[in-house]
């Protein structure tokens, strides 16, 4: 059961002398849901950038499903089975949610298929099912431009799932959402965790508490500590750099 889906060794990313990531080692088991927290500038987003091929590592390597991702560009890595959700929702605003999902769901992403292929019955069914999961059935044929922020977040998560990746990378999925929407997204992620490996980056500690099983704390580009939510919360180093003293931080208490 301890098969590693993602392995990162001695990863360093150097931006003009600034080390956004510094000799970072990380691994994720298949089927695991991992939450990454850390103060601003700890390198969380750069970490995702490297995994998805947006940023090239200066040294070190990333191994996904046993294959190195070195030299691969974003769409190749996406086709290997990595899906990424951005901090601010990125969906195609001039397409409807149904069309958005359909494009992600499509298995043959080459030019030929774009010209001569048509969505299959099975794909149409998957899309309809997904619309139900993300609860956008009633707005399925409106332009995505007209959706609310929370709906766009859900739509983007839906698009990730439609891609049927093995690894989901989710960057601050609840930023700017109401409490109720936050809980919905949490439930959605937990449901997805049953069949996917997921990495979530999040600041909202209450949300982290809702979904986290294992937490990794990043600080200054390397892993500060790793463990269950309780372990991490009681680790003095984490309190020092991130959570703050317990007395003046009710969330961490």
């Amino acid at each position: 059961m301890n098969e590693k889906i993602l392995q990162i060794e001695n990863l360093t990313v150097n931006f003009d002398g600034f080390r956004a990531l510094n000799d970072l080692n990380f691994s994720l088991d298949k089927g695991e849901l991992r939450v990454i927290i850390g103060p601003n500038g700890a390198g969380k987003t750069t970490f995702l950038d490297v995994i998805t091929g947006k940023t090239k590592p200066t040294t070190g390597q990333v191994t996904f499903k046993g294959k190195p991702t070195q030299g691969k560009v974003e769409y190749e890595i996406a086709r290997m089975g990595v899906g990424r959700k951005f901090q601010t929702p990125r969906v195609y605003l001039n397409l409807t949610p149904r069309e958005n999902l359909e494009l992600s769901c499509n298995r043959h992403k080459n030019v030929w298929n774009a010209l001569f292929g048509a969505p299959s019955r099975a794909e149409a069914r998957t899309v309809t099912g997904l619309l139900e999961t993300i609860r956008l059935e009633t707005k399925a044929d409106l332009k995505a431009d007209l959706l609310s922020h929370g709906e766009k977040q859900r739509l983007e998560i839906g698009m990730l799932v439609a891609q049927s990746p093995d690894l989901l990378l989710v960057d601050e999925p609840v930023a700017g959402l109401t409490d109720e929407e936050t809980e919905n997204v949490g439930t959605l992620l937990l449901a997805l965790a049953e069949s996917h490996s997921i990495i979530v980056i999040e600041h909202d500690m209450e949300f982290v508490r809702q979904i986290a099983r294992k937490v990794t704390v990043l600080h200054q580009g390397s892993v500060l500590c790793e463990g269950s939510m309780d372990d991490v919360q009681n680790d003095p180093r984490v309190i020092e750099v991130y959570l703050g003293k317990q007395e003046d931080n009710p969330v961490a208490a």
Binding site: T52, V73, E74, Y75, A78, R79, G83, R84, F86, R90, V91, Y92, L93, N94, L95, E99, E102, L103, S104, N106, K109, N113, A114, L115, G117, A118, P119, M159, Q163
Partner: peptide
Amino acid sequence: GRSGRLLVAVRDDETRMRFSGYD
């Protein structure tokens, strides 16, 4: 059809497209 939606996708958000596995 699909190619038309992809053209709109290029216009709307090329980065999203790349991360969805399209070149």
